[in-house]
Design a protein around this nucleic acid. Sequence first.
DNA 1: CCAGATTTATAACGATCGGTAAAAATTCTT
DNA 2: AAGAATTTTTACCGATCGTTATAAATCTGG
Lengths: 236, 236
Amino acid sequence: MPYDDLKAFRIRKSPKGGRKPPPGLDIEAKILDAAEFVFGHFGFRGATTALIAKKAAIAKPHIYYYFEDKEDLYRAILERAMHMWARELEALDTAGDIQTILIRYIHKKVDFSRDHPDLSRLYANEIISGAAFIGGFIEKVSTPLLRDKVATVEAWASSGAIRPISAVDLFFCIWAMTQAYADFMSQMTIMKHKRALQDADYETAKATIVQLVLGGLGLAETPAPQPRAARKPRRT
Amino acid sequence: MPYDDLKAFRIRKSPKGGRKPPPGLDIEAKILDAAEFVFGHFGFRGATTALIAKKAAIAKPHIYYYFEDKEDLYRAILERAMHMWARELEALDTAGDIQTILIRYIHKKVDFSRDHPDLSRLYANEIISGAAFIGGFIEKVSTPLLRDKVATVEAWASSGAIRPISAVDLFFCIWAMTQAYADFMSQMTIMKHKRALQDADYETAKATIVQLVLGGLGLAETPAPQPRAARKPRRT
DNA sequence: CCAGATTTATAACGATCGGTAAAAATTCTT
DNA sequence: AAGAATTTTTACCGATCGTTATAAATCTGG
């Protein structure tokens, strides 16, 4: 688990005692949710503490009771986003059918875009603006993770299981397609004449991406209907 | 040419007489270039006129001699970006070999990401932040253009020339993949341990995207060397 | 060379930015 | 219920935001 280094990216404030959600919900969580939305839509520089406070329904200086400054708050959410991002890539376990592995990964990525669009937008904004805050994380955590998965894909290719391909670009393309359904959501809703993407839209997205990836790798859609007993997970 | 409506999106200032670049370069172009960079990296809200002026090597209020306000400047660049974006989609002429059409389109899109990364980032930023400025343009100009191309792809599918696919999502995916090589450039350079993407990287990107799209549509990479020679569309 | 128009630079405005100080309100402990 | 500790609000700060006013510089045509 190499990406546990990311603890170094954040210094929290109060390791003090008791937890208690007395009247309403936890304020810190409300701030984080509001900040996720605002940072996700406008980036670090475009987001304002006033807008975050308004979205969280609190007074503006109240933010500074829970977070040192704007950057601390931004890092807190970025960390959450990177955490989930890295965990998803790590969860691409290389055991089992190739088709199943890829399908499962693509589905998970699209589901993430549907369930956490603001986190995806936040990440996209950070990358577009130059990855000033998470460049180190990408270099030290994401890249080794990627290289591991790239090696797996290349092993598939050299064994003849899939058509040869640039494994790095394959991942870039999968990320681009799956994350687009969060980042470019507003464009898609306009072009589809909808107010929001429905479940059916995400299912169609999954099917299309799966078709492109499996087709591009020369794989059939049906993952070889389990010739033997289900209990045997092939080789490790 | 439906997208000529976009003239309504911009009101320029001086339709007055003579053009002359007397001492240095044209100031307005320098402002536009600087603004393209700054808006592209930080979005409308995150960009500051001071930074644009500094990048253009002029005094801050000098901007307001050529542009009414920040929004006017932003729209000017957005218009340029949308112009190029729409022209590219329009240039996907539906004549000729299907493979050739798709390959040419993908190549053009990747070339655009390489040659105008800031414009691509600008567009991405605008979409991510909700498409507040260009929502109308997308609705009135881009969408009809897209629907036309979608009809073409669907005709291909119903004629059996390609595998059935959601044509709309196919375009979303092609845009996502090709534009990612501009928008997510910083992530890619970090993960590739490079300072910038080289020509070879863009060529690999093209090949990968082409492989995914053609493979996903059940098309061979080689576009039928002669009009009537190839009759057995068997893959690899 | 000079008046008039055009282009650039300087000064400064109100609004808003991120952030602080300190008081008010609330909760916890006793 | 009283006092201490914690949570939230009010008031406000200097810096920077977008923008305007206006003066200096430059370029024009005669």
